[in-house]
């Protein structure tokens, strides 16, 4: 987890000084508003781009613990060994998910035999090969999945999440 935490820290630092905030600045400069008013916030939160791992770090069906968009938001990267919708990498088989159950916040465990993430709290299970679709369960949303980008060096970067994370009313705190 140390290595993992370092990558997250790098991502957070980048976020705090990064390009996302600049965009908001430009917007406020262009629109003449009374000085008392804050700049209009973006419709969606600004996600950090965080390096989570390199594709060499991943072995088929061995989930790699990561955290995104910050250290308090655990997740996994998984190389599934089969091409899936939404998968990235040369084989289209790398996916990343939050591992906090969107029902009541219990930690999900990976079941290799059918590539699902399972919740010990109330038995919900999510299909890693189907975009985190809840196979069965109590959550009212499918599992938050990372938007991943792989650069020329094979580094895997997370750059967004497609559902609200459990336990926070903004994905980026």
């Amino acid at each position: 987890m140390n290595r993992c935490a370092r990558t997250i820290d790098a991502g957070r630092r980048k976020f705090l000084t990064g390009a996302g905030l600049a965009a908001a600045g430009i917007a406020s400069a262009q629109i003449p508003v009374s000085p008392a008013k804050a700049a209009a916030p973006a419709a969606r939160v600004e996600y950090p781009s965080s390096r989570l791992a390199n594709i060499r770090d991943l072995k088929i069906d061995e989930p790699l613990p990561v955290a995104y968009p910050d250290a308090d938001a655990p997740g996994v990267l998984i190389k599934l060994g089969v091409r899936v919708q939404g998968g990235v990498g040369p084989d289209g088989d790398i996916v990343g998910f939050s591992t906090v159950c969107p029902h009541k916040g219990f930690p999900l465990a990976y079941n290799k035999s059918d590539r699902t993430l399972n919740c010990p709290g109330h038995y919900s299970r999510f299909d890693c090969e189907a975009g985190g679709l809840q196979v069965w369960g109590q959550a009212t949303q499918n599992l938050p999945q990372y938007v991943l980008r792989i650069d020329d060096k094979g580094d895997i970067h997370a750059e967004g999440i497609d559902e609200l994370l459990y336990g926070r009313l903004s994905n980026v705190l």
Binding site: V45, A130, G132, N142, D162, L169, S170
Partner: peptide, 11 residues
Amino acid sequence: MAYKRQIDRLP
């Protein structure tokens, strides 16, 4: 792909 709401914050 599974249905996602693409909601990342709430009032």
